[in-house]
Design a protein around this nucleic acid. Structure first.
Lengths: 348, 348
DNA sequence: CTGAAAGCGCTTACAG
DNA sequence: CTGAAAGCGCTTACAG
């Protein structure tokens, strides 16, 4: 029982010797392969349990050419709540399949180094595959680096080149359309939109949904109703201040994400407007901030963790498949309108 | 140049053959070991560059017993902005040293599975060492699991057993004391405190700093001035509503973190109070939410990314050292009071 | 300054 | 149903 004490030192050879079988048979048992006698299997398994045997992952990786490591790729890891949600979902799927999760960051275009450092890191990160989160999923340099490294990948919510890889998505455009119509149906006619950053496809899709809804109702939104935003709360604040300075104020503001909607709430407070009485504000994503805001934010629930979970699942499922890249697949997850307290019919 | 095209297929043997040296010499060059002739080194290095040779990490791990993987351990990955900041700092340190970052989650005590699943995952996550973030850094079961796995570890902001491992910290108590005195010096006397969850040592240290400051000034805070909180915005909201219902309202609220302070701001708005005119609110951490709140939040800057960076550095530096656990070290990082707009002298 | 040998702990490919 | 052999691509320990 010395092996026990030296922790992790037990090898397949020890088990084989004790069980009186070859290492190949032990290998079969731990990998749950077929074709092992019932009695043999039980004897080996008992030894494995008793000696707390754990396969050495590096050895397994070396001979099988698999690392059992999945990479999640982010830009701006520190900035968004999104990152944590993605990791929660990705870890769920990893754990189920015996994989582990690694994290890599692509420096944003404005930073020095940029994609260069990422490409180098990717080579010795030894991932079996990676999941690309927005906006890296639409970045040509990132895609080129991942493909050059020969890594299978699944994209989360890509905006372009849908044939280029499997991906997971939800219908942002349709959700934004419904979100807009909800305001319309309350009686709002001057509905403004706070846009997201140019490199985030979701912002564009949500803007399109907004435009589509308005046009469906016969209204061409004025250019000044669409304010620039950066998906950060402060940008929502500034955008709202600008919107409130218009001669004909909007009666409702649709922010392309919750963070900006929270900023909009703050700007309303600063300007002495009571939400939703004087101004309706709605968001998108349904982050914890939406629930915690005052008034609580009417928004759209995006199943972020579930999307990441599905992406990792697709990735792992595809590992058996030679033609992974060719076998184009997509998984669509549903959204849900969340009705809270920040939107109401316009007064007067 | 066939090897080039098959990407990553170039091995140390290929380089050795081309260079006319042994694989051991190639190994020396790629690991920058001493004792290689200048000309030999140059010749080998040129080949490495030309053939885009990258060492196979699994092979290296198997023979050297190092994975070049660092694990960051979290509880509630999805909940806090903190998680992203830690990862940013940890990745900085990893990248400098040629390491990569993996993420593991400990299910909170309330979840099924709990530490059990974590301990198992840890065994085949093959980390060379881990960084424990609050509150995992004070969880006896987590510490036991990490030590049982034989992993070196560094804790971030632990609350107990400082001799048990190296750690990184900042002086929460002192910072909270200063934060409280800042309110005192503005003229506030009824200063309330919103506490954090019981398993977060930082909440306790901040509460102690608050109490210390008040007692220094000869005031024993009434029990009802200390409200329960969970570090989440909604709990700050609820705590503030309760505080505002007291017969003798506090004139200032110190929330143990920014998220709760933002919730406090929302509760003030709901109750028709203008901050800071009718109520001062201050936070702790200096997250992006603090800058984005309205009014912008007066808070304390905690160098989260830097603390994580330092922790990973200490971990990697210690790998050479046999007596890592024995060589107790700690690194202290500084905080910074951040003056914004949510605190002012009490009116009247 | 350089190298030959052994070995890390598994899986693959094949044989029976 | 089971096993012997080879090999994955490096580093370690040793020799000269």
């Amino acid at each position: 029982m010395q092996q026990d004490e030296r922790g992790g030192k037990v090898t397949i050879v020890d088990i084989a010797r004790e069980a009186g079988v070859s290492i190949k048979t032990v290998s079969r048992v731990i990998n749950r392969e077929e074709g092992v006698g019932e009695e043999t299997r039980a004897r080996v398994q008992a030894l494995v349990d008793r000696l707390c045997y754990r396969p050495n992952v590096s050895a397994r990786s070396l001979s099988s050419r698999r690392s059992y490591l999945i990479g999640a790729i982010f830009m701006r890891v520190g900035a968004y709540h999104y990152v944590g949600e993605v990791q929660v979902g990705a870890m769920r799927a990893c754990r189920r399949a015996g994989y582990h999760l690694g994290v890599e960051q692509v420096r944003p275009p404005e930073a020095v180094g940029g994609v260069q450092g990422f490409a180098e890191g990717l080579r010795d990160a030894r991932f079996d595959g990676v999941v690309l989160t927005p906006p890296t999923c639409d970045d040509p340099e990132v895609l080129a680096a991942v493909e050059a490294a020969g890594l299978p990948y699944v994209r989360i919510a890509p905006h372009r080149e849908f044939e280029r890889s499997p991906y997971v998505f939800m219908d942002d455009r349709r959700a934004a359309r419904e979100q807009t119509l909800r305001l319309w149906n309350m009686g709002h006619r001057r509905i403004a939109f706070i846009d997201g950053p140019a490199d985030h496809g979701s912002a564009e899709r949500r803007r399109q949904g907004y435009l589509e809804a308005m046009r469906d109702r016969g209204v061409e939104p004025r250019p000044e109703w669409i304010a620039k935003g950066e998906f950060l709360s402060l940008s929502g604040f500034n955008a709202t201040e600008a919107l409130l300075r218009l001669k004909e104020r909007p009666t409702a503001i649709f922010a392309a994400n919750d963070e900006m909607a929270v900023g909009a709430l703050a700007a309303a407070a600063k300007n002495g407007l009571s939400v939703p009485r004087d101004l309706s504000v709605v968001g998108f994503d349904d982050t914890p901030a939406a629930e915690a805001a005052w008034p609580r934010l009417t928004t759209v629930h995006q199943p972020t963790a579930e999307m990441a979970e599905a992406a990792v699942e697709m990735l792992i499922d595809g590992f058996g498949d030679e033609r992974f890249r060719a076998r184009v697949t997509a998984r669509k997850l549903g959204y849900r309108l969340v009705q809270r307290d920040s939107a109401a019919p316009p007064s007067a």
